[in-house]
Design a protein around this nucleic acid. Structure first.
Lengths: 203, 203, 203, 203
DNA sequence: AATGAATGAGGATTCATTCAT
DNA sequence: GATGAATGAATCCTCATTCAT
């Protein structure tokens, strides 16, 4: 929710500011960034920043939302095929699509992690909302799978959704940021899925 | 690692400072707390703070370590019986012991969450260490289970350990902080365990 | 003294701006109002403000003058009858006419009070001028009364004028703003007049 | 109500700051003074100001209260003799004592005027309290006079008190600030008293 | 060892005014 | 004439740390 003034800016300037914001937040992390940092990196006057955004938080939310919309473009093709197939069969594809996005926008992934791990009150509140939405969407798909008999009736779908969500959020993203190779990451996901699909109990 | 000066203080003052630190960090969150806040809440002179601790970070780590030692007292009895029993059978007991601890020290649980979700560079670094230690310990126990044939050989123990760790860290702690009733939380854990033990696939 | 551009505006827009100015100055007080506040409340472009007025001060003086002209409309009928009657007999009517005006334009009364109690250098200078004018007019009428023998020769007319002026400015206006009932206010004026007419000394 | 830190300062520094505050507030007027101005004139570091006072308002109230205590020292002798004499007979002495004080502390009189004429919300609120106290005290003395038969029973004492208060506050102080000679001012007071004592009506 | 005053750089935000469109 | 983006100085206040007592 940048201010109208920002949205009326010519595209090139908007992009410059957008990129500057990503750079500076990626570099120093949300709390460590000052408005002084921002205006320096974006090369805009101090006063202009407040014409474009409410405050630092507003600017941060702007790039996060922008990033999320971007990511959906990568996930869309996978999600579109979901009606024909079991969600759990596609899960690894979703992860791969996410990795493809990450490769194109590595800084944004870092930002996302920072957001995930943010102690700022305001940030966490917003995060919880994002989180619940994502888990709701996952639950929806998984419920379909259960109805179709792909998932045992005894399985609590919401718990399963949370499990899948956190696997992706924490472990996969973290591995990516640590610079692990893509196939290593895929192997990790496979290991998780092996457990979730088959359970750990000796038959 | 508070300074020697602090450790030489008489117990009553140490406790006052310890409680003050918990209160103020709980109240405002790590990054928002200033040294000015600390000395006011702990009712110590400004200069004394720097005689007791290196800086804010040092003080925060002090209460976290202290808290962790406290927690181990609650977990000890459960862990002691582990040699005779399968770890996975005891997992729910571990959670219960954790909840008992939480009930006695609710503010510390809040702090722990803040720590878990901290974007401060220094904090995350330390956190990763804590995290890896915990996962290592879990892995050890789970490996034993696998050797004894309680867990399928195909299961990747480290992935399993991470799964169990995150379930506890995020979902259980969060439910606790949200004020959910103890048996509701236990039910949640059961739902997770049901999935992990039996898998989700229809037989 | 708004700029010509403002006076050429169509009446409806002039009124909108006039009302907006009253609202915003009444709301926040002269010094606290910024040009940003003004353009928001008046719903005019930032640049237009400087086409209409010199600056904030100019805008404030505009509404004050405007208000004063308005007020004269209420006082006119009373003043017109003054030639036939003793001024002091009409004083209470003047106060009543003032209250009638206040009831129609309560915000302007608030503004007037703010003006009266303004520490801004520029404002006080202008105020002194207003004040002296008002006292001059009062003196004129009172001198007539004295010449006609309604007022003792020993009375210093200018002092009397100031006394009457300040009674009205401070106590009556303040009572009005505090929301006191009209007849309570009239009683106050009567009490003042009783003193001024008859003196306080026991005969 | 300066902070403890200020009151613990050694006297010479307290005085320096006190004088600096008087100078700067006198020079520019309350609203126009910035903290930057204050620290420059008082020759203290920016941070120190906030160790001594809550904010600009606090600093201003400090010098006003201080000034008021000072003034009482001048008025005390006159007030002490009041039990034996009619208050109205002493009123002129009170004014003279006030003028003596003003001659010693001319800047403080200017400040007092600024305070009297302040549109700052916070300032006016405090002012009203001061004002009511002063009027209460006056009323007390005047009531005694009335009981002793020095003042007609029909006179509303509170109205009389307000009249006397405003005469002093506005006209006398203003004349003083305008640099009028002391005997001119005394003559003015006499003119007011002549009216109030004897009334304006031709016998 | 204990204290609390000192410091000035750095934090966010607002400001009146100009000027290119 | 109308518009609203641009500007950077100026606002208040907090900060972690030091150091003289």
């Amino acid at each position: 929710m940048p201010k109208k003034t920002f949205l009326r800016l010519k595209a090139s300037k908007q992009t410059r500011v957008y990129q500057g914001l990503i750079d500076v937040f990626y570099e120093k992390g949300y709390e460590a960034v000052s408005v002084a940092d921002i205006v320096k990196v974006c090369a805009i006057p101090r006063g202009s920043f407040y014409m474009y955004f409410e405050d630092k938080f507003d600017a941060f939310m702007y790039i996060l939302s922008h990033a999320q919309k971007d990511k959906m473009i990568y996930l869309k093709p996978v999600l579109d095929r979901l009606n024909d197939r079991a969600f759990m069969d596609c899960y690894i594809d979703l992860i791969k699509a996410g990795l493809a996005y990450a490769n194109e926008h590595p800084k944004l992934v870092g930002l996302w992690m920072r957001f995930y791990r943010s102690s700022s009150h305001r940030l966490s509140q917003h995060w919880r909302v994002f989180e619940l939405q994502a888990i709701d969407v996952l639950s929806e798909y998984l419920k379909q799978d259960q109805n179709r008999g792909h998932i045992r009736d005894e399985v609590d779908i919401r718990s399963l959704a949370k499990l899948l969500y956190h696997i992706q959020s924490i472990d996969i993203l973290e591995a990516y940021i640590d610079g692990e190779a893509e196939n290593t990451i895929i192997n990790k996901v496979d290991a998780y899925l092996e457990i979730i699909l088959n359970g750990i109990k000796e038959a």
